[in-house]
Design a protein around this nucleic acid. Sequence first.
DNA 1: TCTTTTAGTTGATCTGGATCAAAACCTGAT
DNA 2: ATCAGGTTTTGATCCAGATCAACTAAAAGA
Lengths: 250, 250
Amino acid sequence: MLPESFVATNFDVAQLRTGCATCSLRELCLPVGLNDQEIEVLTEVTGHKRKVQRGGYLYRAGTKFQSLYAVKSGFLKTCILEEDGRQQVTGFHMTGELLGLDAISTELHTCDAIALEDSEVCEIPFAKLEKISSIIPSLMHHFHKIMSREIVRDHGVMLLLGGMKAEERLANFLLNMSRRLAIRGYSETNFNLRMTREEIGSYLGLKLETVSRAFSKLQEEAVISVKNKHIQIHDLQRLKEKMGNSSCTT
Amino acid sequence: MLPESFVATNFDVAQLRTGCATCSLRELCLPVGLNDQEIEVLTEVTGHKRKVQRGGYLYRAGTKFQSLYAVKSGFLKTCILEEDGRQQVTGFHMTGELLGLDAISTELHTCDAIALEDSEVCEIPFAKLEKISSIIPSLMHHFHKIMSREIVRDHGVMLLLGGMKAEERLANFLLNMSRRLAIRGYSETNFNLRMTREEIGSYLGLKLETVSRAFSKLQEEAVISVKNKHIQIHDLQRLKEKMGNSSCTT
DNA sequence: TCTTTTAGTTGATCTGGATCAAAACCTGAT
DNA sequence: ATCAGGTTTTGATCCAGATCAACTAAAAGA
């Protein structure tokens, strides 16, 4: 256990060291502000790195929850599979995002996490995270923000699924990808999708044919170019207008 | 601040006192296990009770986030209103449920919370909750579970909105109400809805006419009786079969 | 390399739910 | 009680997206 002096001070995030043990911390996307000593403590929380190859499971629905996972590199989807075999994608996850939050409630994973390309994650044993959270209030607070952000994100999807039409949904989806890639330093107008039309459809509540048609329509209108999985956005503004409303987040 | 001895002990929840200051704690649905001293501490967290009359706002989208609210009695909805005026209901909330979790991320409320009948809530200043959480690990852990449960619930709705058809959605909705009422000691087959067809529709991603027709259909099939807002479920089993799949939670 | 498999596009048709419209019903206010 | 508002039901029509089907293109294996 730690002296009280550890609790709550604010330093610059740039002080985060770059070694591997702390890599997951940045992925935990901690613009929290911690000093070196605190980082020392946090380092404890970091479990092993784990590689998951394309098509592999990071975890499966129904298995015991032990850890959250911060995506270090790669791209994953989470999906729930229903009795009848059909599966619904609940999210796509890229570098820096945290997986497994849904499992805290029951201590069982409620969905499958599957890598859509070779990926690397940092395991964050949840019990450790909680222990350290109670020592470093800013970490705890930040963790609460992350969970809350997930709720807000889900509400955005609910809005999309509840009210929008196919083209709006796709515009939303593309702009969401674009923004998240931009944040990570990639082009916001030029990127490769990692998922199939079917997976996009599953996420957006559409059939793959409808997704395909919506792509084609946007291309005819010269808003985007689609070449298989490669997307080029020609007119971000117009794409945004197509999105209509809706607060698409994360 | 508190002596370390406070941290993590397990007592029986029956020890929770029944005074008003602690009322919100049970609403926070804390099957956590706390001793009297700990309850003393927790009492601190409880803010004022607040009454919201039918049609009134508990909070509005865009306003500053300060507190969570535990529903003490009554019934509320949360909804996001889009630019174009149309609003989407993101949830219905009854006794014991916690509102405002979405606001932690941005420190602004992302939706409106409106009472559908005269209601009473306990205000839980979030900063205080966090402070005490770091002293009482079991409280922190339970709070994490509550947030996680909200995420799971939202995934359930996404599943519903993404793939199910009108009748399945309504069956889901009714069974969800039924279960939540049963938990609170009310009849699971005989209850009054507090919301309009339009609000149900908004929540389920359907138009009010479709909701009405789905009600009528279930009634024709003698699965339920509908008399205005009063619902009687005649055949729970058959209703469950109609629901198909989907993990309807909370 | 060629072959098989999987993913994506595009067309034709069908249908569940949206939309439009009207009537019946409740609720609350005067 | 009566009236005005909102809510619900039900019918008729329409259309966005599902479904079915055929074909093309790109990976993955041999």
